[in-house]
Simulated scan of single mutants.
Amino acid sequence: MRHKGQWTLIEGPFSPVKSANSAEISVFCPDFYEQESHPLWWGTAQNTLSTQELRSLLENYLTANPRPEGPLSKAQWSEPAESDFQKDLEVIQGKIAKNEIQKAVPVIFARASQTVTAAERAQLILNLLSAPETLYVFGFWQKSQGILGATPETLFSYEHGLLQTMALAGTCPKSDKAERQSLLLDEKEMQEHHLVVEDLSQRLKLWGDVQSQGPMILELPTLYHLKTDFQVKCNERPDFRQLVMELHPTPALGVAPRAAGYEWMKALPGQEGRRGYGAPFAFFGAEEALCLVAIRNLQWSSNESMIGSGCGIVAASEFSREWRELFQKRLSVRKILGLNV
């Protein structure tokens, strides 16, 4: 994890534990649809490194373990099917037309039949050292399965009694800038953003008085997002794992209103093997916590790699515009990881 200019590396083997708020940093990275049964993980050692120290570590490793021209760097990515996303759009807008929901966020994946070797993983992390500070670099892997990426979104952070989070919803690819008005003037994008703001404004009252600032435009290397910041001075220290359960998923990745549930999205085509995409990805200490939203990443298993993207669908959403946005989000991941584009 990169946070405040420092890198935290936690070494395995990892052991499952039941409680957060302990002296050791525990990692919590459940699946998007299932948090209750997933353990917290403790490693055997923790290290804090500067960017230069980590760079030297990675370069020395790659010198000793040359990265072959290899399967992932030359992978042929199978792009998601337009028909899958068209069906997602129809299902969601059908529910909107029936006044069952106001918004939902489907996801789709580009896939490659290659996994990630240790040397490739080192090279990917080396590439991520150059990610702008507006992104949180994160990763976790065990055995043949893992995730690695750089997300702009936090579910929450907690430090010195202050709970902070954000509404990050509403997107414009920089390549579309000349053809589109500012996000702050875009009725569809502002509606999508407002639904997240409204949800968080109500949800955060559980922990104290809610202050907000925004919306504003967050600029990333290839995208613009609408962003509103929230902070709450907590009456007492929250249980971090319970905080995850209360906040995930916001309508930025789930459904508005929350009462409509989000389990039904499992049946939408194109998101098979989703696992941790858009899920909470958290680091818990005794008095501090950082929980990311695991977007803009590469996931892999023993026989497949996946790059996902999602978009908020409201009544005014159009297939062609959303399809372009989904592609630009996946492209931003390949670029920042140094993968073949």
Rank of each mutant, 00 (worst) to 15 (best):
T171K: 01
V210G: 00
V196R: 08
G312V: 09
N127S: 06
K174N: 11
M306C: 11
T165F: 10
R274G: 00
E90C: 04
D84E: 12
P257R: 07
R121C: 08
G338Y: 03
I336Y: 02
L135V: 03
Y136D: 05
V105Y: 01
P30N: 10
D84V: 04
G273W: 08
P221Q: 05
T222P: 02
P152F: 10
Q213Y: 08
V197H: 12
L135R: 06
S19D: 14
A20M: 00
H194W: 15
L57H: 14
V314S: 10
G12N: 00
D176L: 15
P66L: 02
S320F: 09
A252V: 03
E287Q: 15
A131F: 07
N60F: 04
L292D: 00
L218C: 06
M216G: 08
T134G: 04
K174P: 08
S56G: 08
A64C: 10
E219H: 13
K87N: 06
L247M: 03
I295G: 02
Q271I: 05
Y277H: 11
L218M: 12
F109Q: 04
T134V: 13
T154V: 15
E34R: 14
W42F: 13
S144Q: 15
W300T: 03
G254D: 07
S302H: 12
E189C: 08
L54D: 02
F284N: 02
A64S: 13
Q102C: 12
L124Y: 10
N21W: 00
C291Y: 06
W77T: 06
A289Y: 03
N235Y: 08
R55W: 08
G270R: 04
F85E: 00
S22D: 11
S201N: 10
G338F: 05
L298C: 03
Y262P: 03
A122K: 12
Y61R: 02
P215E: 01
L206P: 04
H193M: 07
E236A: 13
K18E: 15
Q102H: 13
P13L: 02
L220Y: 05
A150L: 02
A282P: 03
F28T: 03
Y224K: 09
K95W: 11
A178K: 14
A294G: 00
